[in-house]
Structure formats: structure tokens, C-alpha cells
């Protein structure tokens, strides 16, 4: 075989492998959407789940997922922001900084089930928080922090150094320069990072099974008192999320229509995550245009 023939053959082979990957994705999306969409109805989205009979919905799971997402972001964003500011603006080039970076890398490489079990051990058991949204949100925070820190640090890093110098040369403190000049410029990137991490939080289940729990008690959506046990806002109640629900109905095998519930829930999950991804890109682009003055 001449080199040219080998070259052509190799190119064909690579194209073939790429085609398979694309087909896998199309199959996955097709399977989820085609088998899931027929099960999505107003009833499915707005009625509570039923364990032992068919026809249950996902209302509470859907709400729990969203509530958990919001709580997680409220806890993890300030922490990630502070840490990213430290790493990008204050950290010197020394052993301490590399220790911190190693710690964050270790955190990001931990399997989410280990992070979940740690949350279970510390918050559910030691601190007696029980299976609760709060425990779940804290566990998800651990899992979300490295990703968020990395994306915020990246966005801060992308701000030209001349902006830092401009601020400092005016006699501004570093902190004021960071807050008033660097952060607004990094905002599109930071927002994109938050939304992308939101997609990940939304689909995460392993860290939640033993922290937020696997049960969804009846919720009272008219009770706005967060301390009432039946209130939908109570952060101390156990809360099964949509992703955990999919796992549970499939592994417990007591719900008769487990397959159609999972199919519908998977489709809902995927659609929401897709919306997050598109939203992240759209917001990022739009804010970037607005900031650079190209209206």
C-alpha cells in the first residue's frame, strides 16, 4: 500500500469513528425524547408521585430539584467567588498556592458518591440535620465548588491586566478594583459558568441519595412558612429530586409504570439541561456584546 492509500484509508477510518459517535448521540437524544415526550403531560408535571400505583407525576421532584439548585448556588457561589478572587488576584507564586490548587484538584477528582457519603456522615449523622434539602445542598456545594472556582478564575484571568493597572494607578484599593472593574468585566464568563454548573447540579443524583434523601413527603405549596414541616420552602425536609427519582423507581421496582415515568422524567431533565446550556451561551454572547460596546 502506498503512503497515499494509507492516508486515505486512515482518514476514512477516522471519519467512520466520528460518525459512530455522532450516531450514538443522536440515538441517545432520540431515545430519550421519543420515548419520553409521550409521557410528558400537564398531569405528569403537576401531580405528586405515587410509589405503588401507576399514573404518578413528578411535581414535587421537579420542585425539589429547582429548590435544591437555588440553595446550592446560594451557598456555593459566594464561596467559589471568594476563592477564585484569591487565586486570580491575591495568590503569589509559592508553595501555599500550589497546595490550594492541589486541594481543589483533589476535590474535583473525588467521585460524587464519595462526596455524598461525606455529606451523609458529617451533616446527616454528626450534625443531626437528617435527610434534608440543606444537607443535599451542602453536599452539592462540595461537588460544585471546584468547577465553579475554575470557571470564575478563568473569567477573571481573561480580563486584561491593563484594567488592573488602570484601577490601581488611580489609587483604588485592589479590592475596589476587583469589585468595581474586574468583576463587571468578567460577569459574562461568570454567568456562563454558573449556568453550566447549574445543569450539572440539576442532573446529579449520587451525591444526593444519602443527603437529601429518597423520599418526597407531601408538600403544601400554600404554606410559605419555611419552618413548617409541610411547607414547600422548609429546607430541613427530605427531598427526592428528579434525578434521584429516576434512579429510585428503576432500582426499587415497585412502581408499575417505572419505565414510562423514568422516560418522561429523563426527557424533562434533558430538556431543562439543554435549556441551561443554550441559555448560558446566549446570555454570555449577549452580555459580551453589550459590554464591549458593539451594540
Amino acid at each position: 500500500m502506498t503512503p497515499n492509500q494509507t492516508d486515505r484509508l486512515a482518514t476514512r477510518f477516522i471519519q467512520f469513528l466520528v460518525l459512530i459517535v455522532v450516531l450514538i448521540l443522536l440515538f441517545l437524544l432520540g431515545d430519550i425524547i421519543i420515548s419520553g415526550l409521550p409521557h410528558i403531560s400537564w398531569h405528569f408535571l403537576t401531580s405528586p408521585a405515587s410509589s405503588f400505583s401507576a399514573g404518578g407525576g413528578i411535581r414535587d421532584q421537579l420542585f425539589n430539584s429547582l429548590y435544591l439548585l437555588v440553595l446550592t448556588l446560594i451557598i456555593s457561589f459566594p464561596l467559589a467567588l471568594g476563592s477564585a478572587i484569591y487565586l486570580s488576584e491575591y495568590a503569589g507564586d509559592n508553595w501555599f498556592t500550589s497546595l490550594i490548587r492541589t486541594a481543589i484538584e483533589v476535590l474535583s477528582s473525588l467521585p460524587s458518591v464519595v462526596v455524598g457519603l461525606f455529606g451523609y456522615l458529617l451533616f446527616v449523622i454528626e450534625f443531626h440535620l437528617g435527610f434534608s434539602i440543606l444537607s443535599g445542598a451542602i453536599a452539592l456545594t462540595f461537588f460544585n465548588l471546584p468547577l465553579l472556582i475554575r470557571s470564575i478564575e478563568g473569567s477573571l484571568h481573561a480580563v486584561p491586566n491593563s484594567q488592573r493597572e488602570a484601577g490601581i494607578a488611580l489609587g483604588l484599593s485592589n479590592w475596589r478594583t476587583i469589585r468595581g472593574i474586574l468583576l463587571p468585566m468578567a460577569l459574562p464568563g461568570i454567568l456562563t459558568g454558573i449556568i453550566l454548573s447549574a445543569g450539572r447540579i440539576f442532573g446529579e443524583a449520587a451525591a444526593l441519595i444519602y443527603t437529601a434523601g429518597q423520599s418526597a413527603p407531601i408538600l403544601d405549596y400554600t404554606n410559605w412558612n419555611p419552618t413548617a414541616s409541610s411547607s414547600f420552602l422548609n429546607p430541613m425536609r427530605p427531598a427526592e429530586t428528579l434525578a434521584v427519582h429516576i434512579w429510585k423507581v428503576n432500582t426499587e421496582g415497585v412502581t408499575p409504570d417505572a419505565v414510562s415515568i423514568s422516560a418522561g422524567s429523563s426527557a424533562v431533565l434533558i430538556i431543562i439541561i439543554l435549556l441551561f446550556n443554550f441559555g448560558a451561551r446566549a446570555i454570555g454572547n449577549r452580555m459580551y456584546k453589550k459590554m464591549t460596546g458593539g451594540k
Binding site: 490550594i100 483533589v106 461525606f118 484599593s173 485592589n174 475596589r176
Partner: peptide, 26 residues
Amino acid sequence: ASHEDIVGRIISYSCIAAIIILVISI
């Protein structure tokens, strides 16, 4: 400005401390 910078350092250093404590406790 000097006070602001102390505040900023305290905030970002405590976030980093929290992360280190977290990893060590895990």
C-alpha cells in the same frame, strides 16, 4: 482604601480557608 483592602483580603482568605478545611475533613 487600605481598610477596603484588608476587608477584601479577609473575605477571600476565609473562602480559601473554608475550602482547605473542607478537603482536609473529607
